[in-house]
């Protein structure tokens, strides 16, 4: 564990909690892509199956459980409790366009051809692109609530911090996991455009709107 990884994990946790609190306190999930949230729940489910097979630390297991519970809670709030506020007309990205190619790639490019390892690889690839329905939704409506943009910033920062962690681990431990690194870089690149808008607009007190 190093400081970058810890900050990355905390940033990830912060993002998940910001989103849950936003939905709970406003009693609304307007502007949030349910498809991205379903994909994230799928990411955690397929990655954290090793909770049953591989013990790393209390911290590791606790965080996995928290991520899993929070992501399912978010999906539950969106599709059941506050379903009336879910903006499905704007959430039109087709999940199968991500899940099918990512599933195929996980079969072809992985560290080991075993069920758990393929599911882990699938989760890494899927996480890289799971935010696309959310970004697509924002590009359709042309705007995002400020709290939603805080959520996205925390979520994007998490993988960016992990990249620093991977550089650090490579030099200190000689550890590198090429699959995670390449997918993590793709994931971070997808957020770059959003980061730019966040810094130039939201941090200056304006709402995030896309140029016409």
């Amino acid at each position: 564990m190093n400081i970058f990884r810890l900050l990355g994990d905390l940033s990830h946790l912060l993002a998940i909690i910001i989103l849950l609190l936003k939905i709970w306190r406003t009693r609304s999930c307007a502007g949030v892509s349910g498809k991205s949230q379903i994909l994230f729940a799928l990411v955690f489910t397929t990655r954290y199956l090793d909770l049953f097979t591989n013990f790393i630390s209390m911290y590791n297991s606790a965080m996995k459980l928290i991520y899993l519970v929070c992501s399912y809670a978010t999906v539950f709030l969106m599709y059941f409790k506050f379903k009336a506020t879910y903006d499905s007309n704007h959430d039109t990205f087709r999940m199968e366009f991500l899940v099918v190619p990512v599933g195929g790639l996980a079969f072809l490019v992985n560290h080991d051809f075993t069920p758990l390892e393929i599911l882990w690889t699938f989760s890494i690839y899927l996480e890289a692109v799971a935010i696309l329905p959310q970004l697509f939704m924002i590009s359709k409506t042309g705007e995002a609530e400020t709290i939603t943009s805080h959520y996205l910033f925390a979520l994007g920062s998490y993988r960016a911090l992990y990249i620093v962690n991977w550089v650090f681990r490579f030099y200190t431990e000689g550890f590198f996991d090429l699959i995670a690194i390449v997918a993590g870089c793709v994931q971070t690149i997808l957020y770059c455009d959003f980061f730019y808008l966040y810094i130039t607009k939201v941090l200056k007190g304006k709402q995030l709107t896309l140029p016409a």
Binding site: R5, D9, H12, D50, N54, I56, N60, M63, K64, Y67, H111, D112, T114, E117, W120, Y162, N165, F175, F176, D177, A180
Partner: peptide, 10 residues
């Protein structure tokens, strides 16, 4: 035997 990286990250 699987010799890939151990998945100790979240």
């Amino acid at each position: 035997e699987f010799v890939g990286p151990k998945h100790d990250e979240l």
